[in-house]
Design a protein around this nucleic acid. Structure first.
Lengths: 333, 333
DNA sequence: TTGTATGCGTTATCAA
DNA sequence: TTGATAACGCATACAA
């Protein structure tokens, strides 16, 4: 490859010193109009572009941020990513995308690489496992948690009111006549899922409806297969639940698949509410009632918090943003 | 922030020179076992991690690649991204994610930044507009086109056999008794869409079925609204098409929305095939017949091509990979 | 306002 | 096999 043109080259043709070139580049000091013009001409003529690498080495800022998400393929996460990216782009930041796949080792590896690459900050939906690592990472570099949070990490965070989401959904089910309400859940160690389950229980308690442990199905994983098995088990109990709340979109799809396979009709045989609304739910048969999360805004807001953190005083207190959910009533209840 | 520990620090505690430390780090030369151990001990003790920035400045390689896609929010693109990312991760590369939003200016801006950041290569689904810019970008740095290609750019590419996809779909429609087949398209300047349309026409021609221009609807944009308008127009002609092929998933969703609004029943009033299968199509009513693209593999393969290109001889000929599509027959026809 | 000199943390060249 | 030394491209402290 041809040698890149550098600040030296510019200074040479502009008849000035490298530092002056740097000054017009960064605007860090006043430069006389003549020199400035000369430099700018030279820049144009040589088609010069400053090296971010060199600049970063010197200034220690990279204008890039790491984004660690479970799986960009999940519409919820891709919407978050889009929100982050748009906001980052508006402010001249680039995004390094990492899929953790709910794998703690992979997460930690990424976290290390991101530091090696000296990102200015990290936005992540944490797995539950790298607690102590995360904790001291957050001391050294701005970390924003999104979607989920993990205990005791002093970091900004953007989450959703999971509890209120399922609380409202549960009341809706009850209002529709359901008293035997089941939950399809996954790992309770994940903050979001725990909060959602708590919302259901509280609503039930407030309504004086006994909580029936047998109505809770725990999927072994997030594959359709896993949910299917869990749901099958659930539907074998007698009496069986008349309504189900699936705690995330994958679980919801699993329930749907299971019902189809078992010939369970929704909503006639079983009502269903899914946490996290997919925009295609309205095309389903029946259209699925769901709890909508403002995914894009989560991402956008997270990036805003990060930007704020980057210019904040040393010990500005941590900020936790909680966004509301919304129950989208369709016809699966 | 505390000063980062450097190679100097290591050399000091290991009782050796910085160059020797560098040598054990990179394995670029043989180092005596004693020195090697001393260095490794020091590294562990000081918790040292090399600065990628400094390294990149020197070596001119960054182990990062840019990925420019229309919109990560579209399941087709997010699957590509996932494929790229997984493969990149396996080889120690990170991904800089950019959403172009079909906006040429934004694309060019990203392209410039990526160069400024000195990425090792770029994978992109190009907009049609930065032709000349792209052309000489591809001379300077490895570029892999995915999904779409743009004329005359000497770059590797991974695409799908769009033509065959719609060709087969069209024959399927005809086999099901449809002779009045319409197409819902968008910009014909996009290679994929043009090829897909050509597939339909060729199939029709081969079957001696006249092509009816009035059966083609051009959406003004990709919003549901846009498709809706286009479809409404289409359904007003007499005689009207009995079957439609939507040239991408967004257009397909638009058709569906339009039909719902207009009370057009699928497949009774109108058959539909969508190019690009969404995994939720099986939950729709009716389940949608679609042309599946191996999105994940597109991404994975693209990253593989890039890796190969990075170690290839100067003028290794360009490689164009074409992956097959598959017609998934469900019940919308 | 401008220029010189130095350093950011590495790797690479060269001599020993 | 090892160590000085220079260089990567830039920003900045300091001197002028």
């Amino acid at each position: 490859m041809i040698r890149k043109t550098t600040i030296q080259d510019i200074s040479r043709v502009a008849g000035t010193s490298p530092s002056t070139v740097s000054r017009v580049l960064t605007g860090s000091a006043v430069v006389s109009p003549e020199k400035r013009d000369a430099v700018q001409d030279a820049i144009r003529k040589l088609n010069y572009r400053p090296s971010h690498i060199a600049r970063s080495l010197k200034t220690r800022v990279t204008y890039s941020v790491g984004l660690l998400l479970n799986d960009i393929t999940n519409p919820f996460y891709s919407a978050i990513a889009r929100g982050v990216e748009d906001e980052a782009h508006r402010h001249g930041y680039s995004l390094i995308l990492c899929n953790t796949s709910e794998d703690a080792d992979r997460e930690q590896l990424y976290l290390e690489v991101l530091q090696d690459k000296h990102v200015d900050g990290i936005i992540l939906g944490p797995t539950e496992s790298n607690l102590s690592y995360l904790r001291d990472l957050a001391q050294r570099i701005p970390v924003i948690q999104v979607d989920r949070t993990v205990d005791d990490i002093a970091s900004d965070a953007v989450v959703v009111d999971n509890f209120a989401g399922t609380y409202e959904a549960t009341r809706h089910l009850v209002a529709c006549g359901h008293h035997q309400i089941g939950v399809v859940r996954w790992r309770r160690s994940i903050s979001t899922l725990a909060e959602r389950e708590a919302g259901v229980r509280q609503a039930l308690a407030d309504l004086d409806i006994p909580y029936e442990p047998a109505f809770t199905a725990e999927a072994a994983g997030l594959s359709s297969q896993d949910s299917m098995i869990a749901v099958q088990r659930l539907l074998r109990v007698h009496p069986r639940p008349t309504a189900l709340i699936a705690l995330n979109n994958q679980l919801g799809l699993g329930v749907l698949a299971a019902c189809r396979q078992l010939g369970v009709r929704i909503p006639d045989d079983l009502a269903l509410i899914v946490f996290d609304d997919l925009d295609v739910f309205s095309f389903f048969q029946p259209p699925i009632t769901a709890i909508e999360q403002p995914a894009y805004q989560i991402g956008e807001r997270a990036m805003q918090l990060l930007l704020a953190r980057l210019v904040a005083e040393k010990d500005t207190p941590v900020e936790r943003v909680m966004l509301p959910t919304r129950l989208i009533v369709r016809q699966s209840v």
